[in-house]
Amino acid sequence: MEDLKNIVEECVSGNVRAQETLYRMLAPKMFGVCLRYAKDTSEAEDNLQEGFIKVFTYLKNFRHEGSLEGWVRKIMVNVSLEKFRKQHVIYPVDDLTVFESKNYSNDIIENITADELIELIQELPPRYRMVFNLFVMEGMSHREISESMQITEGTSKSNLARAKDILKRKVTELYGETETTKNYSA
């Protein structure tokens, strides 16, 4: 813990070696976060780069009160949110579409790898992907999501349902048959 504090202090005073240590420590996990929020690897790389530039610029403001990882993660999420806001100017039109949701089984998601799941999340339409990530992974409420994305709460709820629906449908389409065979043989 003391070590981390020292590293942070060294980073703030401009020590390049300390900055690299901190980067190596956090980059893999943060790249994982960025990959979830981005449409592809190249966008995730851009966000990771931009995020770390922000981390080192504002590190002097970090008060060591919460976890550093949480603080850095918040910056990564904010960079992705900012980029989303810039790229997708969305006006508050209520999207309360009711979907015909099939009752997909949860097993099907349980059986695919994290890599595969991330690829599927990346393919979601941008707004669905954003709502899905903020709700499921960051644990934000629909009210918080509606404020940070400038959409209505109703839209947030509907988008989340739609995102999950698409995910499950895709998993079934891509891996459904294999899973069925596995189940039978088990």
Partner: peptide, 26 residues
């Protein structure tokens, strides 16, 4: 359940970023 499954799967997901990201940051 769906949320939990996805969260558990992705919470500790890590990927190695390409080396040039650090060079660019620097």
């Amino acid at each position: 359940n769906t949320d939990d499954i996805i969260r558990e799967k992705l919470e500790n997901f890590q990927a190695t970023p390409p080396p040039y990201i650090w060079d660019n940051v620097q």
